[in-house]
Simulated scan of single mutants.
Amino acid sequence: MPLAVGVIETLGFPPVLAAADAMVKSAEVTLVYYGLAESARFLVAVRGQVAEVKRAVEAGIEACEQAQGDGGQLITHYIVPNPPENVESVLPIHFTKKSEPFRVF
């Protein structure tokens, strides 16, 4: 069954931490990627069923907005309901040895 991917990009570390925490606590998703994009911009990506990813991204956005003190902010977010295999093989949205033990589906 195809799995969706949801991504949130923030400016600053506290908002991405709050978003990641809220995402994995609010829905049955697995955090598959976290990284520094550029210029203090951070990304967090989760995978799961489409409805779960939508719920996780909504919770992550809300948590990010609450943690925006001292210049941190939500930059953007996006959900891909069914990424094709070639996208999964190139972009860092696949399950890794680190994320596989936490896979919830």
Score class of each variant (00 low, 15 high):
V57R: 10
V80I: 15
E65P: 04
Q73C: 05
Q49F: 02
Q68N: 07
I75N: 05
V50R: 12
V53N: 06
P81G: 12
Q66G: 01
A63I: 02
Y78F: 14
V57K: 10
A59Y: 09
V80Y: 14
E52T: 09
I61W: 00
V80F: 10
G60H: 00
A51L: 04
Q68F: 00
E65H: 02
E58H: 05
R55N: 13
H77A: 11
N82P: 04
V50K: 09
H77D: 05
Y78M: 14
V53W: 03
P83S: 13
G72Y: 11
A63K: 09
L74C: 01
I75H: 12
A51P: 06
G72R: 05
I79M: 13
D70N: 14
A63F: 00
V57F: 02
E52R: 05
A67V: 03
V57E: 04
V57T: 09
E65G: 01
I79C: 14
E62G: 10
A63N: 06
Q73W: 00
A67D: 00
T76L: 08
V53R: 12
Q73E: 10
E62S: 07
H77R: 13
N82S: 15
Q73K: 14
E58M: 01
A59I: 05
G72P: 11
L74M: 05
A56D: 05
E58Q: 10
E65D: 02
E58R: 10
R55V: 05
G71Y: 04
A51C: 03
L74I: 05
E58S: 14
V50Y: 02
G71T: 08
G72E: 08
G69A: 07
R55K: 15
I79F: 04
A59D: 06
C64L: 03
I79E: 12
E58W: 01
